[in-house]
Design a protein around this nucleic acid. Structure first.
Length: 208
DNA sequence: AGAACGATCGACT
DNA sequence: GTCGATCGTTCTA
């Protein structure tokens, strides 16, 4: 099978967050594969990270998926109108996850576009929309139709999974770009004291 | 039961 | 750059 195994998600969360850059994420929506490339991630580690929903192993109704086995989707709602997609990592009992913060569409783009922006303008795609397509955690959940209904999905099954490259799916592989891995502090966690400065956000920088 | 807040986004100055 | 929207989740009592 082309998709990543349970073991892939069992490792160190920060390593996984970094290594996920450039990998392929697939969401099957109404039987249609929506295929994307991961461009930005963040690591969250319950054991030691005050920014993590499960900091200090604190368990709530919302974050229970993080306490289960790795390789599941942890999806929660935020600010009353958005959702965030995370991939549960580390062995069961170590509540940790990688937040997916940015994607590029590789296949199924028409469908993603309509999910993201609706049918207005006949599905036209202006420059502003192109620039702000899937470059944020709430935006990509909208574009892939991921909500709390998908919380807990098993990433070793067929509805949502990751793999090495689109060629694993029989799709043409995009020509490689000149990119480098960047790391820096995470976004929107100023409350997290010392964890605020952990360089656990990773993204691909494109040299034009 | 009620209050406070948030791993965001889009509109606007 | 600033700011309001909007409500699920968590905490306090």
């Amino acid at each position: 099978m082309a998709s990543f195994s349970r073991e892939y998600y069992m490792g160190d969360t920060v390593d996984i967050a970094r290594s996920l850059l450039g990998k392929t994420l697939v969401r099957v929506y109404n039987g249609q594969p929506l295929v994307c490339r991961i461009t930005e991630t963040e690591a969250y580690v319950g054991r030691c990270d005050k920014a993590c929903h499960a900091y200090g192993y604190h368990r709530t109704a919302r974050n229970t998926v993080m306490f289960g086995p790795p390789g599941h989707a942890y999806i929660y709602s935020i600010y009353g109108m958005y959702h965030c997609l995370n991939l549960v990592t580390e062995p069961e009992g170590e509540p940790s996850a990688v937040l997916i913060r940015g994607l590029e569409a590789l296949s199924g783009e028409e469908i993603i576009r309509r999910l993201r922006f609706g049918d207005r303008d006949g599905g036209k795609f202006n420059a502003y929309q192109k620039k702000n397509f899937l470059n944020g955690p709430g935006k990509l959940c909208k574009g892939l139709s991921l909500t709390t209904a998908e919380n807990g999905l098993d990433l070793t099954e067929d509805a949502l999974f990751l793999c090495e490259s689109p060629s694993d799916l029989g799709l043409p592989c995009p020509s490689p770009k000149r990119e480098q891995i960047c790391a820096g502090p995470r976004v929107g966690i100023d409350y997290a004291e010392e964890a605020r400065d952990f360089p656990w956000r990773f993204w691909l920088k494109t040299e034009e």
